[in-house]
Amino acid sequence: MGDPKKVLLVDDDVDLVAVNRAVLENRGYAVVSAHTGPAGLVKAKAETPDLIVLDVMMGTNSEGFDLARALRADDATRQIPLIMVTSVNTTVPFKFAPDATYLPVDRFLEKPVAPEALLQEVQGMLK
């Protein structure tokens, strides 16, 4: 079966990370986590995960975007698929579109993401 696939969860909500970690670990994934954008970048370089699940709003409204752009700008992390999760809805005055230049992510999910749905997304991407 080989080495388990590794998923990096970046979210400032520790409880949500705990839930997603439990689901993914139960399905045989290795899970690492970070709670801030900068810590996420350090973890991504050190652990070279197979997939990153990223929250948009952490310390600032754009911390998730900043991290996504930093990951795409770095040779070591550029190829890692990104799933972005957010609780921000349409009332926030900036737009999300899967725009290759502004929002370099592979999937975009809105909170709350049911554990089952997240699992399906992760499985689909790591096939």
């Binding site: 909500d13 997603n20 709003m57 609780s87 709350p112 049911a114």
Partner: peptide, 8 residues
């Protein structure tokens, strides 16, 4: 956010 976490 917290509701989403509680729900999850």
């Amino acid at each position: 956010s917290p509701l989403a976490t509680i729900e999850s």
